[in-house]
């Protein structure tokens, strides 16, 4: 069931991408894109997808929008942070690798969390082992696992749980 849902979501995404890339005014493109997207999503030849973890409900949809807003804000903040550190004459950094532990259980949730961590201020994901993520932090202020988790992913975890817990 979950696999089927993942494949259905993949079909919609692939078909959408096809229609954006080609001229949507032509009927031929609709037919050809539909066939190709269908084959690419249902053939067992292609690997399983993590997209089935996505929840599809109005609440999850709002969660996605909220996550997107938080993500964009974090992306802008992280770039201002980079700008500050790079242009500061003394390079104010104190880098280190810390461990955090996530509550998210699904592969998709963890993937999105790892990507979000990389694009938020001063952190990149180095390695994941189960529910433990190892984060390179440009300015280490918390070494304790719980405190670091709260400081780095508290906000994102809460948002991601809504639509792909």
């Amino acid at each position: 069931m979950k696999d089927l849902k993942g494949r259905a979501i993949r079909f919609v995404l692939l078909y959408g991408a096809w229609l954006v890339l080609t001229d949507p005014g032509k009927r031929d493109e609709w037919i050809a894109g539909g066939i190709v997207a269908l084959l690419a999503s249902v053939l067992p030849l292609f690997p399983k997808t993590a997209l089935g973890d996505l929840k599809l409900s109005p609440k999850a949809l709002f969660g996605m929008i909220a996550y997107f807003a938080v993500f964009m804000k974090a992306l802008v903040m992280s770039n201002l942070d980079v700008a500050f550190r790079v242009l500061h004459p003394k390079l104010p950094i104190n880098p280190g690798i810390v461990a955090i532990r996530t509550r998210l259980a699904t592969p998709l949730g963890r993937l999105l969390l790892a990507n979000s961590i990389t694009l938020t201020p001063g952190t990149i994901t180095v390695e994941t082992k189960g529910d433990t993520f190892f984060i390179h932090w440009i300015n280490v202020s918390e070494r304790d696992v719980e405190a670091a988790t709260k400081a780095i992913v508290g906000e994102f975890e809460k948002r991601l749980e809504v639509f792909c817990g």
Binding site: L75, N79, V82, V86, I93, P95, T118, G122, I124, I138
Partner: peptide, 28 residues
């Protein structure tokens, strides 16, 4: 921001920090 990413990659002391500026600033 792209220029900032390059300056960061040149100024930062090691490859993890270069990744930090490289990835974030080139994305935005």
């Amino acid at each position: 921001f792209l220029l900032l990413a390059s300056v960061g990659m040149l100024r930062m002391p090691d490859y993890y920090n270069r990744m930090q500026t490289g990835t974030k600033a080139t994305t935005l």
